[in-house]
Design a protein around this nucleic acid. Structure first.
Length: 643
RNA sequence: GCGCCCGUAGCUCAGUUGGAUAGAGCGUCUGGCUACGAACCAGAAGGUCAGGUGUUCGAAUCACCUCGGGCGCACCA
């Protein structure tokens, strides 16, 4: 509601200024810091002052006097040395909220692809991966809340070096073949993704002392690329099992996907070969004949020596495959995958995976995006630049523009966190402000361990408050609280901020946290539930709250400010999408919860003796509830039945 | 060396396209539970927005420089 009035005010000013002064300006609408200044401030007079060679205050007075009535605006006044402060018509505003807004027009940006998670399928997920998935999933929810068509992709690098290293571990270091590994998978006592976590660290450590073992890796990589033999079979088993483990981990956080494009299909369906031909044909890459890159196909320009796309041995680098994949996302490759169902979510939606053979079941159309967001950490920005440069070199300027590197800084570990987890640090580590997570060293906080810890803490809190509620119900509530805490914690930082992960901070359920948000929503629901328990009915708000009554109740400054902040969800979402910043939604959600808790303490709704006021307060409660629920849903945070 | 990011209260972080008196949480201190459940609320203390120069009506925000920290610049991804 607030957002739509903002837009109306802005366009009214723009039209008036155009007609009156013959100047076309995009009129900014600000929100004054002090609420006494009204709800909106228009600094347009400052913008015009220079061109008109007049004092801003004088222009502001002219504007205020001449612009005429704007729907929803109650009063307009000149303030400071040229601000135009706008006060809304409170009664009309409240009434409009009560009647409900017209559904947001569905945005028509075409299909948007958001690629996120993308964890190497060779070991358990850690907190860093959770930041990626939570950011990506929340951004998907934000876009969908605006009516966009979004496809969530999770790319699976199942033929890369990291998978090969675990295969090397099984085959060469532990002497295990496919049969033995399958037995492990069938053994409920073995936590396979955790086992691989250790095995991967063990294997990379082994390379340190045995350089000759790197030949095993090369051999394994070739076998996996060729897709035949025992090593390739091991690679399949490992990657498939770990992907399933990752999906299960992400499902705990309510993160779901539409399709899993796999690198093996990019190879087997010759996506790379097609892209390679294009790149050669359009001279985007060349065969280096001298220097350290002799024998490689190289893309020039980005760094001094260029970026190797095809190694001298003839194998493709990850970036090469990524260029082919990016072309496919835009429908530019002239090829498509086959698809088969991989699993089914609780609501019946199918998660598809790419396949190299045709399948009976008809799949939806994937790819063909107008814009692509790649959620990848900031350390890989160079590689994302290479991918874009590849598109440009092929003449796909527009698609390069529409390829967004949705970058974020890494998650590291705080020193206190390392101490809590018993991670030993070198002297060098100790001097740094935080400690980098390292899959190779097996150093990090596993995602499932973190969630388990959170759940057990939440369970203690729930049990203390509700000793006689059924245990399985308490478990469900605790899970929702734990996940709410985790998602909020990962989302409250802006993308450019490095998170020095601190277990004690993440475990907090007080202050600016997910549970604070959940608690506010639970309280709002409790009021409405208690009302019915007392045998009363939720009033017919539209019938009982006419314009005058609404105006009377909103004359109270406190009530007005509370309603105002509760009604800014659209404006907040709009800004957050424009900035590509889920943290803005999180911050808004927190301020919304704060406003409600304020309201909760100030007004004992059910005790209110005055009928009109009670109806108004109940309506406010219900409005807050809806806004809290909606905003929490965008953040992927569930509201528990009780807390 | 080149490129990107960061530097705001004791700590962790927000701060809209440059706007009016720089905010929040945690921590510290003071108060508030007879249940619309305190996982909450009210109040207090706490700032040279790293430093400098510039741009202008106006700078935490933009430009340039300096200092401090992080991350990249692989035939790994």
């Amino acid at each position: 509601m607030f957002h739509s009035i903002q837009k109306q005010v802005s366009s009214a000013f723009r039209a008036h200024i155009g007609a009156r002064y013959g100047i076309d300006v995009a009129v900014a609408i600000e929100e004054p810091r002090q609420s006494e200044f009204g709800e909106m401030a228009v600094p347009a007079a400052f913008q015009l002052a220079k061109q008109l060679r007049q004092a801003p205050r004088k222009i502001a007075q002219e504007l205020a006097g001449e612009i005429g009535p704007i729907a929803g605006v109650g009063a307009m006044e000149v303030a400071g040395n040229g601000y135009l402060n706008i006060r809304l018509d409170r009664g009309a505003y409240g009434l409009a909220l009560l009647e409900g807004e017209a559904a947001a027009p569905s945005a028509s940006s075409g299909k948007l692809i958001v690629e996120h998670t993308n964890i190497n399928p060779n070991k358990a997920a850690h907190v860093g991966h959770l930041r990626n998935a939570t950011l990506g999933d929340t951004f998907v929810r934000m876009l969908r809340a605006r009516g966009e068509t979004v496809e969530a992709q999770n790319y699976i690098d199942n033929t890369g070096v990291q998978v090969a290293d675990v295969v090397v571990g099984f085959h060469y270091l532990e002497g295990k073949g496919p049969a033995e590994v399958r037995l492990m998978l069938a053994d409920p006592a073995v936590r396979f993704d955790y086992y691989c976590w250790d095995l991967y660290a063990h294997t990379t450590a082994y390379y340190q002392d045995h350089a000759e073992a790197l030949d095993w890796r090369a051999e394994t990589l070739h076998a996996i690329e060729a897709g035949s033999g025992e090593l390739a079979e091991l690679g399949d088993i490992v990657a498939d099992a770990i992907v399933r483990a990752h999906l299960a981990t992400m499902l705990r956080l309510d993160v779901e996907y539409d399709v899993l494009p796999r690198e093996s299909e990019i190879l087997h369906l010759h996506f790379w070969a097609a892209a390679f031909e294009l790149l050669k044909e359009r001279k985007a890459i060349y065969l280096e004949t001298e220097g350290k890159n002799a024998g490689c196909w190289v893309m020039p320009g980005l760094s001094e020596e260029g970026k190797v796309i095809v190694r001298s041995g003839g194998t493709v680098t990850y970036v090469g495959k990524d260029i082919a994949y990016q072309l496919w996302k835009f429908g530019l490759l002239g090829k498509d995958f086959y698809y088969r169902p991989f699993q089914r979510y609780a609501d019946g939606r199918v998660l598809w995976v790419t396949s190299d053979t045709p399948n009976q079941e008809p799949a939806p159309e994937f790819g063909h995006a107008t814009r692509v967001y790649n959620v990848i950490d900031a350390r890989q920005s160079y590689l994302q630049d290479v991918v874009c440069a590849g598109l440009r070199a092929l003449g796909y300027e527009r698609q390069a523009e529409e390829s967004v590197h949705f970058s974020y800084e890494m998650v590291a570990l705080s020193h206190r966190c390392c101490a809590d987890l018993g991670i030993s640090l070198s002297d060098e580590d100790r001097e740094r402000p935080y400690v980098e997570v390292s899959g190779r060293k097996g150093r990090g906080v596993k995602a499932d361990d973190l969630m388990d810890t959170l759940i057990s803490k939440a369970l203690d809190e729930v049990a203390a408050r509700h000793p006689d509620y059924p245990p399985e119900e308490r478990k469900r509530v605790a899970e929702q609280i734990a996940i709410g805490a985790l998602r909020y914690f990962l989302l409250k930082f802006t993308r450019t901020s490095v998170i020095a992960f601190d277990l004690q901070e993440a475990l907090s359920f007080e202050g600016e946290t997910g549970p604070y948000l959940q608690y506010a929503a639970v309280r709002a629901r409790n009021i409405l539930r208690k009302l019915e328990e007392r045998g009363e009915q939720l009033p017919d708000f539209a019938a009982e709250l006419k314009g005058e009554a609404m105006g009377r109740q909103l004359a109270s400054e406190d009530a007005w400010q509370m309603l105002l902040s509760a009604s800014k969800a659209d404006a907040a979402l709009e800004k957050a999408v424009a900035a590509g910043e889920p943290a803005h939604v999180a911050k808004y959600a927190f301020s919304l919860a704060q406003a409600f808790n304020n309201f909760y303490h100030q007004y004992p709704v059910l005790q209110e003796p005055n009928r009109e006021k009670k109806v108004f307060l109940l309506w406010m409660t219900d409005f807050f509830r809806r806004q809290l629920e909606r905003t929490a849903a965008i953040l992927g945070i569930r509201i528990p039945e009780y807390m």
